[in-house]
Design a protein around this nucleic acid. Structure first.
Lengths: 169, 169
DNA sequence: AGGAGTTAGTTATACCAAATAATTATCTGG
DNA sequence: CCAGATAATTATTTGGTATAACTAACTCCT
């Protein structure tokens, strides 16, 4: 029933879902989601960076990034201070607590990568990363949105719900 | 700013997004989304199949599949008939119009795959598919959901500055 | 034959991620 | 100094997914 396995798009989607689930599971004990982990990591490696920088690096719109950063601050994992050089922006740093949590997260994440290596091997993992990197460089034309459906489910149905666009993070 | 490229999860996510966008774009002239394309393809290759079969094959919950199938039927691309052998289910088939559209979609999709090959080459594409297949076989423990944020934004945030956001509990 | 339990399809609902637009405060370049 | 750009925030909308409940029809078991 699934001759789709021969399509790159489908295979990518499947693999992405599995890997994401595994990483989510790995970080769950820390009450950290993958995106939160990467935010901590980026701040750690770029002390004093700003919300705009981090969100841009992750491809997240700054508006949607506010709640994420506010949560991490609320958990005392990061600190936000008015930037000296630019009063509009905040400079972000990890708190000692954030650094400690990141340390534990990195261990869990390396166990996750170890599972990946268990599936495909050390050398093939590097090969995969190279291939994915090349794929990601395919020129992206501006995403044209298609209406969820051309015809209402039921003409008389008030708000026919249900959508069919895939992709999740 | 992105040392994340060395992580399989991140690289997968990026590549998946780009490839999905390219396929979406490719199918846009037909007002077909990737998932609709795959539904048509599966029905074409499994004439008389049911909604449950198709939705299960695609990993979509049957409840969320209703609107998708209703739309395709509304566009006269598929036909739904009460199954003879099981009056609960519908048997699905493409209409001539659906078959014609699928044909055009397949051409556009093969152009899409050609672009993929343009990025990584014919042989490497097969290699990639094999690697992704192995990744997808990583045992998935039941996805443990983590709350989007542990500390919800204040409900009455009319005059709430960022620093006022509270730690819930 | 007949009821218990199951399955196909449907509806309604809730949740969450992402996109958009508008606002305020601040910076920068001519 | 002012016009325009930028950082952060808020509110809102949209789209995908998950869940529960319901109806109708099937299966199995005795």
């Amino acid at each position: 029933m699934t001759p789709l396995v021969g399509y790159v798009g489908y295979a990518l989607r499947r693999a992405q879902g599995v890997i994401f689930a595994d990483l989510s599971q790995a970080l769950a004990p820390l009450i950290l989601r993958p995106v939160q982990f990467t935010v901590l990591l980026l701040i750690d490696q770029n002390p004093g960076t700003t919300q705009s920088c981090v969100s841009a690096a992750l491809g997240i719109q700054k508006a949607n990034f506010v709640a994420t950063i506010a949560d991490l601050e609320g958990r005392a994992l990061i600190r936000r201070r008015k930037s000296e050089s630019d009063a509009r922006s905040y400079s972000l740093n990890l708190t000692p607590r954030g650094r400690a949590l990141l340390q534990r997260a990195l261990e869990l994440q390396s166990q996750h990568e170890a599972r990946v290596i268990g599936q495909i091997g050390l050398e093939e993992r590097l090969h995969l990363l190279a291939l994915l990197h090349r794929l990601a460089q395919l020129p992206v034309t501006e995403p044209v949105k298609i209406a969820a459906r051309s015809h209402p489910v039921r003409p008389d149905s008030e708000h026919a719900a249900a959508k069919d666009w895939q992709v999740a993070g």
